[in-house]
């Protein structure tokens, strides 16, 4: 009896060859990207997109060529946060043009393909019933295309803003075996850190992606008038202890700043206007730690 691997042909479709061509195309497209860093967290709402947008701006200010891929296909926000939501991608040669944000940071996001407003991502199918059987495959295919079919140009670093979920990093690592590392984002709450702890284990033990370090977001609130700092969350478990438990670097804490939220809502650069704020200094410091780790 023949096994699957003994079958000489799949009837002429050459599906394996087509998949191999897709992978080769992806490799070729990213050949001029020195580092790919995933911004991840098992927990939603901790500020992965905020950290991604701010780090891209910080690295850009430091003179590095940074790009951003919004890999949160069902909840894309990067285009809005970076003020390029009106960009309509168009094809040029063999790829599509990314949006260019502050300092000409290339950004690609599912958001750029969706109608403005509240239209969700709906994939065409004879029926939406049973979509759970194929939706994740379509999403991986879309993610591959967003990476492989965008004119990224030459980049020092591409930041990939992942959707929440410990599995998302592993999916990306399957697609991109050469990810340089991942930044894990948490908030100072026990629930977030419980979930994020699982993500750190998943990243290092299963996906085998180097963990660059932990970023603590929304860590306290500083009074803009007197500088008094107080915790935003009761209990306020220290994130650096989470980093210690997992033997990873604690890269720093970004305090809550209403001006940062405003800037991201309006799609303007926080670092351009507030580089000397506590949050601004924290972001720039984390960017320093990141480029030191990457040896840019």
């Amino acid at each position: 009896m023949k096994s699957y691997h003994d079958i000489a042909s799949d009837g002429g479709s050459n599906v394996l060859e087509q998949v191999s061509v897709q992978r080769k195309h992806l490799e070729e497209r990213l050949a001029d990207v020195r580092h790919i860093v995933a911004v991840a967290s098992g927990k939603g709402g901790v500020g992965k997109s905020t950290v991604t947008a701010c780090l891209a701006s910080a690295l850009n200010r430091k003179g590095y060529a940074a790009g951003v891929l919004d890999a949160d296909l069902n909840g894309p926000s990067m285009a809005h946060m970076m003020g390029v939501q009106d960009h309509i991608p168009y094809s040029r040669d063999d790829a599509m043009t990314p949006a260019l944000s502050h300092g000409r940071i290339p950004i690609m996001s599912m958001d750029l393909f969706l109608p403005p407003g509240s239209t969700p991502v709906i994939w065409q199918a004879p029926t939406q019933r049973g979509a759970y059987t194929w939706r994740s495959m379509v999403e991986m295919s879309a993610l591959r295309e967003l990476l492989a079919d965008t004119h990224w140009g030459t980049l020092d670093i591409m930041l990939v803003d992942l959707a929440p979920g410990a599995d998302k990093l592993q999916n990306l690592a399957d697609l991109l075996p050469n990810i340089s590392g991942t930044l894990i984002v948490t908030t100072p709450t026990a629930v977030a850190q419980m979930v994020v702890g699982r993500s750190i284990t998943m990243a290092s033990d299963v996906a085998q992606v180097p963990v660059i370090g932990l970023v603590e977001n929304m860590s306290g609130n500083t009074c803009r008038r007197c500088g008094h700092e107080e915790a935003l969350f009761t209990g306020n478990p220290a994130a650096h202890k989470l980093a210690q438990r997992h033997d990873i670097a604690y890269l720093g804490r970004i305090p809550f700043d209403a001006r940062l939220a405003y800037c991201l809502d309006e799609g303007i650069s926080f670092l351009k206007d507030y580089p000397e704020s506590t949050a601004g200094k924290a972001i720039l410091s984390i960017a320093d730690a990141l480029h030191a780790w990457l040896d840019l």
Binding site: P89, S91, D94, A95, M96, F113, L114, P115, T119, V121, I122, W123, Q124, V138, S141, A142, E145, L146, D149
Partner: peptide, 12 residues
């Protein structure tokens, strides 16, 4: 470019 994404999105 992005053939699959663009042809499979129901509303774009």
């Amino acid at each position: 470019p992005m053939e699959s994404l663009r042809s499979n999105l129901a509303m774009q």
